[in-house]
Nucleic acid binder design. Structure first.
Lengths: 192, 192
DNA sequence: TGCGGAAAGCGAATACCATTAGTCTTGAAA
DNA sequence: TTTCAAGACTAATGGTATTCGCTTTCCGCA
């Protein structure tokens, strides 16, 4: 039976992502993941050194896709000849849409405390710099660090609270209040 | 040997909180918790129906304390005769200080996906309403829902990103950029 | 004063979980 | 044809939460 290759790292990640999406990250066990792939749990160790390493690969993939979605959204804004503020609002909406479409993976990537599961932060730094420069157009170079941190916080916090049902008042339109909050922040930055 | 009471629910929660603070929530096991209390794991089930129930009680306690800290901060602002905007900035700083002083417990309370670990959201609704009314002074009744959601998101998101080392640019003063972001948001709200 | 029930602890067992070590099968290269 | 490494396997280890039935101790009531 053995030898004919039955899985690849990509296939494993794809299946793991699907199971996390369907049943949540806590429910992912190597035994059930392996069974879904037609192999046994120990065989997974041929491809990933540990469960933590597998999750880190998943998180890296997630980060790449998140940035790709934001970049694509900004490209649309550029094509439409939008102002810096309008482009940032567009990016903020793309961010939230992606996070909600990949809720379990998003939460997993953003809340892992185990250092072994965390992607290397340095990979993403140049990607974030693009957006920090865009914010610098609104607020000046000196304030751009506070601006990028605040915008990331607002987007991330809103999505996290929404996904965890932590908003006490369930009434109202979540899309509309998100838009209002983002625009208030950007306007407040531009005001200075 | 049995019967002489060795623990109470309060004592269990206190020890669990201390262990989570010291070693992280993931490292909390009922066996080690029980050992630290001088009993065995199954005995814990006399006091909590499950580990999830124990964690929910911990989260409820955390929420009560967080609101108490914010209320106390606001009381100082009221005593000092501050404006609504200054009071809100003061509350935002108290929020972040509390979250950072109880990092593991904060993350645990805000990121549990298991419904059994989540406190009843309705308990906190009246407490949040106080702050929503304060925001209404800045922005009007109609926009106050977006304002409270945005402010919570900004505070929560900033703290979460900070605690998880997700801010790519590690330079700069985290206190100063938090203050700048909060004030930008509040100014943007007041501007309308 | 004595008795019964309830409460609080325990040991043992169950069913998972990630991980490791060692073994077998296979196909391709020599 | 033989060799060898890669990919899968079985079996075992130590950890986890949880359940069950049992024992011991105390308190209230007769």
């Amino acid at each position: 039976m053995p030898y004919p290759v039955q899985v690849t790292p990509e296939r494993i990640l794809e299946q793991a992502g699907a199971m996390i999406d369907a049943e949540g990250a806590a429910a992912l066990s190597l035994g059930r993941l392996a069974a879904a792939l037609g192999i046994k749990a120990p065989s997974l160790y041929r491809y990933f050194a540990s469960k933590d390493a597998l999750i880190r690969a998943l998180n890296e993939q997630h980060n790449r896709r998140l940035f790709a979605v934001m970049d694509a959204a900004d490209a649309e804004g550029v094509d439409a000849g939008e102002t810096a503020l309008a482009r940032l609002a567009r990016i903020a909406h793309a961010y939230r849409a992606f996070a909600k479409a990949n809720a379990s993976a998003y939460v997993l990537a953003m809340t892992t405390r185990e250092p072994d599961q965390l992607p290397d932060v340095r990979d993403d730094e140049p990607r974030v710099l693009v957006y920090q420069r865009l914010l610098a157009e609104l607020v000046g170079e000196a304030e751009s660090l506070a601006a990028i941190r605040g915008l990331l916080a607002l987007m991330h916090g809103y999505v996290m609270l929404e996904l965890h049902n932590q908003f006490r008042r369930s009434g109202g339109d979540f899309d509309a209040t998100y838009d209002a909050a983002v625009r208030a922040f950007l306007n407040g930055l531009a005001q200075r």
